[in-house]
Design a protein around this nucleic acid. Sequence first.
RNA 1: GGACGGGUGGGUGAGUGGCUAAAACCAGCAGACUGUAAAUCUGCCGCUCCUUGCGGGCUACGGAGGUUCGAAUCCUCCCCCGUCCA
Length: 312
Amino acid sequence: MSGECRLVVILGPTASGKSTLAVELARKTGGEVVCCDSTQIYRHFDIGTGKLPIADQKRIPHHLTDLAEPEDVFTAGDYRRQALRALEDISGRGKLSILTVGTGLYLRALLEGLDDLPGRSETLRERLRQRAAARGAEYLHRILVKCDPAGAAQIAPRDTQKIIRAMEVCLLTGKPASELRGRNRTGLTGFRVLKIGLMPPREKLYAQIDRRVDAMYELGWVEEVRSLIRQGISANAKPFTFLGYGQIREHIANAASSPLDAVVREIQKETRQYAKRQITWFRRERDVHWLAGFGHEAEIERRALEIIQSQS
RNA sequence: GGACGGGUGGGUGAGUGGCUAAAACCAGCAGACUGUAAAUCUGCCGCUCCUUGCGGGCUACGGAGGUUCGAAUCCUCCCCCGUCCA
């Protein structure tokens, strides 16, 4: 890879219009779109994860969607590896990469790199999970304090998920995870990164989220889930933890549960809460050119283009 | 018209004399988060003042009075809602 390539990053909460903006920018700059979203990675989970229809994806090259099967566990580390290859490929062809990011952790993994730590060990995790289930998360946390006092201090005693990861690293390496952090971390090199953030007014964002979920429903989301179940995808498959998929699956499996419109309203609510968490993460992101609107607005698109051009 | 049941903070709802600005849950807001991240977890959540303290003041449990050192909790009247009887 020669010299400085450019990487445009578009970040923002769900429903802020990242994809629309990315496609427009790609069209005008001859760029290609790279997805940075933990859910669009999974095949067959299309409507609820907000994937663009295939027809739209065909017009502009899209990368890093549909990489994993539903029963796979795809991680931030996997994403980093795949993304590096994709970026290299795109810039190798002299094209501009436009990254649409909804998953802050994946962006960070790509830009700053991950610590050189062991990946998951499902057997170890299973044991730890059982321990936590039987004796409580606090019990595991107390053990973690012994293995890794500094690390334990930063993890809430009830945060089972993070405790398990820290324990996993300790047991696999024989060293405290916190001691291993920050070493040998290699960030993304060879790219000049330009971040554009979409931050529509909260009220409008929430209204847009509601509309978007309604639209997904209209598009046949429930049918999609029915077909996923028919294909025999396990209820424990990771994508069934994605917003909406679990609720809809539950509704189908247990017809007596709650009426569909209640399910839709629940999904809208949870999506709003998710958007808030994304906003919290993105607020800490450095060097972002924030735009206070939606990616589908002409004015926002104009300004985004202006930013890109002024930086070249 | 009569008989019960009920009206509590944005919502649901506990509380039946002081430990109650009022449980719990939800919603909301804010935050943390390097291999599950659309996940997981944390804090705040009546108003207000300052010397920011397990600090002060004010307002609050349908309304108005009353009993009491003290009331969301007891009494009286009124208003509203639900169910039942006429």
